[in-house]
Design a binder for these strands. Structure first.
Lengths: 124, 124
DNA sequence: CTTGACATACGAATTATTTAGTACTATAAA
DNA sequence: TTTATAGTACTAAATAATTCGTATGTCAAG
């Protein structure tokens, strides 16, 4: 069976976004980036990154004294999993209602929709 | 300021879906519906529905001995809030990347995209 | 009237998530 | 060599989410 597909919690995601941006990062890098937005302790970040490692989202390598972390999976893949989980949970697995919602609520304009439709056409 | 926009937790959502389906429901109604899928205690359902009431998602009225619950807000509105929260959290607020993802991952086919594009055109 | 069925109220245990403190180690500067 | 610094390991507290037990009340059947 599949590894139970744990999806990223909000704080985990926040950190993963920063690591993906950087391609690789130390605890200190992420700590400083987070600190720019809110009060947080260094060890908190360390704990989270350790959790992300045990969950299989990050890989670490020691470099000098500190660990350097890298994403274990590409962003697209992980985000894709989160979208799938959301659609399962909220729409019982079908994506159309989500799309309809996006458009009706003007979160996406008709123009963009067609732009993407064209994009797909051309890609095929 | 706005009421802090608490979004529905997974279990809360599961219950709300059932209430929306029914338009109104007792704890027993929901308990039985949930029980069909998994083991759960009557009082667990009661607690959850009480929470949903204090959070403002359900309204209750006593009818005979039991409470009858009704949705306090239409499904579309609440689901809309969840979508917004998801897009904020995962895509920093912009919906386009989500759409692109849906299409690239074939969660939505080009045909449906255009169907919806037409739908919008006609509606305007 | 007593009892069983069914409801709510209240309290609390369990698990998941988030946060951070303290102890210890190694390097580099003084 | 002593000491300050920057790192990890380990532990645990705080909060949020989920679950359910026990006490209690009310109604209806016997």
């Amino acid at each position: 069976m599949r590894p139970k597909h744990t999806t990223l919690t909000p704080q985990e995601l926040e950190i993963m976004k920063l690591v993906w941006q950087r391609e690789s990062a130390t605890v200190r890098d992420i700590y400083e980036a987070l600190l720019a937005h809110r009060k947080i302790a260094y060890t908190t970040v360390m704990t989270m990154m350790k959790i992300l490692e045990t969950k299989g989202y990050l890989k670490k390598r020691r470099q000098d004294r500190a660990f350097v972390y890298r994403p274990a999976h590409p962003k697209n893949q992980v985000i894709g999993g989160m979208i799938r989980e959301f659609i399962d949970r909220v729409f019982n697995g079908s994506a159309e209602p989500l799309l309809v919602h996006l458009v009706k609520a003007r979160r996406i304009r008709e123009k963009d929709l067609q732009k993407i439709a064209r994009m797909i056409e051309e890609a095929e």
